[in-house]
Design a binder for these strands. Structure first.
Lengths: 207, 207
DNA sequence: GTCTATATCCTGATAGAC
DNA sequence: GTCTATCAGGATATAGAC
């Protein structure tokens, strides 16, 4: 194999196979075969399978994190006290957009979901450590828009929002992209619908 | 090993190990060791690992399905046109209650989540085939309470509800059961909060 | 940096005695 | 129904030539 491309080829193949078969099922033999590189090169470049898995996580989550920080900062720069719906859009849109990306979207969702399931607490710690900051900033800004609610209730309702978002990203649900529908139209409609749904849920007053 | 208990012991051990390590990682050797039965007995009683996995799925999902049908039927018997919040409670409560069950709750959630991730479409087909009926009845009843909404939008918002429910079941979120809080109180509060959140999201009018 | 060859271990499954 | 022993294959990881 030509020099210098090996590492990239491994990551690409790993991304594909981890997403479709899972971290456990996908073997280094399959990865190196698909990448058309030598089996031993994985250990040379990454040290172990575990490290390769971390690298694949990181690549995907870094991308999302950058987008979310950008969305948050741009929003706050334009208006330090933005309406709740704008905050929710900044929170929701980057994730949903990434998950429907025609190139990496499917991989992204599968890999993150598998991370949750296969590594559980370990993965949550990783997320909190590496990407927790932007989440806390969103939380504070959203809680500020709901001054009548105790923080605990804000957290609960935000969890519902994140759950709805995650489920939508996973394309697990009843709604499917019908043939002929433009992807961008569908995405905008989903973002819009989820923002309004969450806004109603977050601001609802006790009966 | 004393006769007659082997099959049950295997299922119990499998449930435990599949939940904590996943279907792929948990080996039959680990299962039989924990169950204190012979390795070969798995194949004698279940034929293959794959069949054992299906059996574990079925045990958990059958339980949920029975509870949901009971909740739906009881509600409809008392009032053929119940308020939306009651429909949502009947939809949400059995799942959330099962997922926080001190004995099987943790297993239940992990196993269902792993089913989604490790078997994806195959698992969805299984769910729809075996347990789709009660879902369709809930959907029809809920759509009936939202006559001004097209079915597609009802489906979308119900997906958000299911997402929020699933995420809550998985205990993935920010909110944690604080020490000293009564489990039943916490459960009721979560059910109540999610029902109201979803109701607000489902009934929200376009701005 | 890349390769071959291999060490070491674990997997699901089964044949056949009891 | 339960057991031992084993098969056949696949896994990660590495030593060492190039």
């Amino acid at each position: 194999m030509a020099t210098g491309q090996t590492k990239q080829r491994i990551i690409q193949a790993a991304e594909h196979l981890f997403a479709s078969h899972g971290f456990v099922r996908a073997s280094l033999r399959q990865v190196t075969e698909l990448a058309e590189v030598n089996l031993a090169s994985v250990n040379y470049h990454f040290g172990s399978k575990e490290n390769l898995i971390q690298e694949v996580f990181r690549r995907h989550l870094d991308g999302l994190n950058v987008e979310r920080e950008k969305a948050f900062d741009e929003l706050m720069a334009a208006d330090p006290n933005p309406p709740l719906s704008d905050l929710l859009t900044a929170f929701i849109a980057p994730a949903l957009r990434l998950s429907t990306d025609p190139v990496h979207g499917e991989y992204f969702v599968q890999i993150v979901t598998r991370g949750f399931v296969e590594y559980k607490d370990q993965f949550r710690e990783f997320l909190s450590r590496e990407y927790g900051d932007i989440n806390r900033r969103f939380f504070a800004a959203i809680a500020h828009k709901l001054p009548h609610l105790p923080d605990q209730e804000v957290a609960r309702r935000l969890d519902f929002t994140i759950g709805a978002l995650t489920y939508s990203m996973g394309d697990f649900g009843l709604t499917k992209l019908a043939d002929g529908t433009d992807r961008e139209d569908y995405l905008r409609a989903t973002i819009d619908s989820l923002v309004r749904f969450s806004e109603a849920g977050l601001t609802r007053t006790p009966t």
